[in-house]
């Protein structure tokens, strides 16, 4: 199946859906009311760099656009289910809607942007790239993050950034209970309130280099929040070496 053909008619595709991807005149439209997620993913795995895709009627289906390893643009109009853009590499992906559990889990590179909310474990274990959620996320946002950058426009749920190893988590709203529990070297910026910090997570000074990286991340996410209004959190590094006296914290 040539992905640049219309899935329903087999004709070369020239139609566009708003908002149009930017880097090519050629856009493939796939309607998941007609095509299967398997067809879409196979096509995305087989396509070339530089292609553009629009997906309609996702209807909350799972595993849409997982395993992309191409420098492509993809727009999804509607809500997506579990593991949307899982293990994403290189491309730029936008969802005009909300995402289910495990949005962009283990993302390596590229950008995944959700205009609505994301469920639990957004960007879990992400190793690189940028995940932007304009709305809120559920629990465990950025759990075990390993280098990904995450910008959330709204609030995040409990146990977010649990065992976060590396990368930056920016929250423009409030954070739930147990933020950054057992955190390693990731950096967390929160503009609103933090319900509670997890074990070994402490507030740290917001120095100029932090303001600079925060400004950069906010700009990448298309946000106008003032970096100076954020507070920074990170590891107290007291759990880095096992000690029985810390037993209550394990």
């Amino acid at each position: 199946m040539d992905p640049r053909l219309d899935q329903r008619t087999g004709d070369p595709v020239t139609i566009t859906h708003a908002p149009a991807p930017t880097n090519t005149a050629r856009i493939t439209a796939i309607d998941l009311a007609v095509s299967t997620v398997r067809d879409l993913n196979q096509a995305l795995h087989a396509t070339d760099d530089g292609t553009s895709w629009v997906v309609d009627t996702p209807a909350g289906q799972h595993n849409i656009a997982v395993g992309i390893d191409r420098d492509l643009d993809l727009v999804v109009n509607g809500h997506v289910g579990y593991y949307f853009a899982g293990m994403h590499q290189k491309g730029r992906v936008t969802v005009h809607g909300s995402a289910g559990v495990g949005l962009a889990e283990n993302i390596m590179s590229g950008t995944v942007h959700v205009t609505g909310d994301a469920s639990q474990a957004a960007a879990a274990t992400g190793q690189g790239g940028l995940v932007v959620v304009d709305g809120n996320t559920g629990a465990r946002c950025g759990i075990s993050m390993k280098g990904v950058d995450i910008v959330v426009g709204g609030d995040i749920g409990h146990a977010s950034a649990f065992m976060a190893q590396a990368g930056r988590l920016v929250v423009c709203g409030d954070a739930g209970e147990g933020l950054g529990d057992s955190i390693y070297e990731a950096r967390i910026y929160v503009k609103g309130t933090v319900a509670s910090l997890g074990a070994d997570c402490i507030e740290k000074p917001l120095r100029p280099e932090h303001l600079a990286e925060l400004a950069e991340l906010l700009a990448l996410a298309g946000r106008t929040d003032d970096p100076a209004e954020f507070r920074r959190y990170g590891s107290a590094r007291t759990l880095y070496h096992f000690a029985a006296v810390n037993a209550a914290a394990y």
Partner: peptide, 19 residues
């Protein structure tokens, strides 16, 4: 349990959705 079970409800586009 999942959003996709709600996707067809009338007025879902403007519903207050939360976990």
């Amino acid at each position: 349990s999942e959003y996709r079970a709600l996707a067809h409800l009338p007025g879902i586009a403007n519903a207050r959705i939360f976990e």
